[in-house]
Design a protein around this nucleic acid. Sequence first.
DNA 1: TTGAAAGCGCTAACAA
DNA 2: TTGTTAGCGCTTTCAA
Lengths: 342, 342
Amino acid sequence: MAGIADVARLAGVSTATVSRALSGNGPVSVSTRARVVQAASDLGYVVSSDASSLASGRTRNIGAVIPHLNRWFFTSVIEGAERVLLRRGYDLTLYNLSGEGDERSRVFEHHLLRNRVDAVFTVSLELSDDEVSRLLALGKPLVGVGGPLPGVSTLTIDDVAVARLATDHLISLGHRRIAHIGGSHEFDLDFHIPTSRRLGYEAALTEAGLPVEERLHRASDFTLPGGYEAAKQLLGTPHERPTAIFAASDEMAIGAILAARDLGLVVPRDVSVVGIDDHPLAEFFGLSTVAQHPVQQGEHAAELLLDALGSTRSTGGGARPEPVSHTAPADLVVRSSTAAHP
Amino acid sequence: MAGIADVARLAGVSTATVSRALSGNGPVSVSTRARVVQAASDLGYVVSSDASSLASGRTRNIGAVIPHLNRWFFTSVIEGAERVLLRRGYDLTLYNLSGEGDERSRVFEHHLLRNRVDAVFTVSLELSDDEVSRLLALGKPLVGVGGPLPGVSTLTIDDVAVARLATDHLISLGHRRIAHIGGSHEFDLDFHIPTSRRLGYEAALTEAGLPVEERLHRASDFTLPGGYEAAKQLLGTPHERPTAIFAASDEMAIGAILAARDLGLVVPRDVSVVGIDDHPLAEFFGLSTVAQHPVQQGEHAAELLLDALGSTRSTGGGARPEPVSHTAPADLVVRSSTAAHP
DNA sequence: TTGAAAGCGCTAACAA
DNA sequence: TTGTTAGCGCTTTCAA
C-alpha cells in the first residue's frame, strides 16, 4: 500500500502539498496539483481514512439508525441518503435496531459514541431523552426522519394532514361510511404515526359533518395480511358495510383490496380503498394513495447533514444551531381503487 | 470528550493498561481492570475508533456491497450480518450500487480502498476481474453471498438444485405440463441466477422423461407484476394451459397466483404454483416454495469474515487462504398452492 | 504557493 | 502484571 510519502517523493513535493492537492483544502498551483494527482494515480494511492480522520477530526462517514431493515420506507430513505453521500465521497454506516437483543443500547451507548461518524440521522425512531442527549452531546449534526423529535431537527410528512387528505378524497367522492384501518398501540411506540393518522381521519370526518364511529375503525399492524384481516371484518357485515376504507399504509390497503375480492366485492364499485405511501406495488393494484417520497426524504436528510457539516466548520463549530422542523411533501395519487359513491 | 489519558489518570494506571483493560488484549489483573472500567464509566469514555484503528490496523468495521436496497433478499442478508457484527462490536458500512451514476466504480476504486473496513462481503454481485483483484489486493477477508465468484470464497444456495427441487415437487404431484417463469437476460448479469434455475427446471423435466417446451417458458423480471403478466400469457390459452407453474422467485409466483385468479382459475385446483425464496408474503398467499434463508446467510457470511479476521491475526497474516465455496441450505416448504394433478 | 514539523488518540513492542 | 515510548499515516499550523 502506497502511502502519502511515496506520492510526495514521486511528485517531488512534500506530504503537506500532497494532502492539500488531493483533498482540495489549501492552495496548490495547477501544475503541482497535476503532478501530485498523476503520482497518486500511478501508485494507486488512496488516502487512509483512519489517519485522515484522526488528523482532521472528520471521518467522512454518516451514521444511519433505523428500526427495521425489511420495510420499504426505511430502506428507501437509506437508499436516497446513500446516493447523495456516495456522490460526496461519504460512507454510510448502518445501525439496524431490529434484533431482539440489546442492539439499541449498544448502538446508542457505544457504537455511535466512538467517533466513527460525523453526523447521524435516524428514521422513524422515537428517541428517549437519554438517547437524544447522548447524541446531542456528541456535538454532531443530527436529523430525525419520519417523525417529530423534540430538540432535534426533523424531516417528516405531516401525518395528520396526510390522513386528512386521503379521507377528504373519499368524502369528496360522496362517501359517508368511511372505515379506517390504522395501527395498534404497539406500533404507536415510534412516533405515534397511527394516532396522528387516525386524528387526521377523524378531523376530516368531523369537518364534513360525518360521525366518527368506533366500529368503523380497526387497529392493525401495517402489513398486508393485517390489512386483509381488518378489512374482512369491516366488510363482512353487508348492511353496515362501509363504502370506503382509508388504510394507514399501502400494504394494509392492498390487503383490504384482496379481502374485498375474496368477499366477492368489486373495487371500486362496491368499496373504495385509499392508502398512504405510494408503495411500489400500489400501481399494480391500482391503489389510490397519498405518496410520500422516502427516497427524496433520504436525499434531503443527507443534504441537511452535509450542509450542517459544512457550516459547522466555517463557523468554527460555535453554538449548536436551533433545531428546525422540515415538512416533507406528500401528494394524492388517484388510481382506480377509488370512485364516486353512487 | 474524555480521552484515554483521563481514564488512566483517574484509575491511577498508564494508558497502556487502560487500553489493555478495555480491549481485552493483554494481561491485566482483575482489580486493575475493575478500576479502569469504573473510571471509564465515570468519565463516559468511549475509545476513538479512528485512533484505535490507526494504531492497531483494525477498524472493527465490515463493508457490505449490494446491488439494490429495496429487495427482500439483499436487506435480509444485511440484517443477518449486522446482527452478528453488532454483537461482536463491529459496525457495518453499506455500499449500495443501485444509483444510476458511477456509484459502482467509486465504491470499488475509492471507498473500499481507503481502509475503512477490515473485511468485505458482497451480495448477489458478479464482480469483474478488475474488481476482484482490487479487493483481493487489499489482503482482507472477502466473501461473496448469493452466487459463484471465481477466486473468492462464497456462500450461496445451489440454484440448479433448488430449481430441480421445486420442479420435482410438481412432477411428483403428477404434473406433466409444467411452465417456468424465469428471468430475462438483463437479470442474468449478476450470477446467471435465471439461467441456473432454468437449467435445474429443464434437468428435472428431462430426467422425468418430460419434454422441454419453449412455449412453456417466459422470461420476466423477478417482480410481482412481471410474474402476473407472464402467467396471464401462459394461462391464457385454455387447451394448451400448463397445469403447474414454477416461478424463479416468490414475487413472480404470487403474481402468477393473482393472474390465475383473475382468469377465473382456482389455485391449486386448476393450476399449481411454486416459487423460490420463502418471501414474507408467501405464507399469506399459501405459496409453496423452496425457502432460502437470507438472514442466516448473512449471519453465516459475517461469521466467516470474523473467523478469517481472527485467524489472520494469529497466523500473522501469512499466505492468503484458499477460497472456499459454502452451499447454503434451502428446503421445500409445501403450502396450499400446489396439489396433485387429477 | 510550499515545506517542516507537531500532533490527532490510541496500540503494542519492549523493558521492567 | 504494568509502564515507557515509538509510532500508526495523515492534516494543519506556522514560517518561509
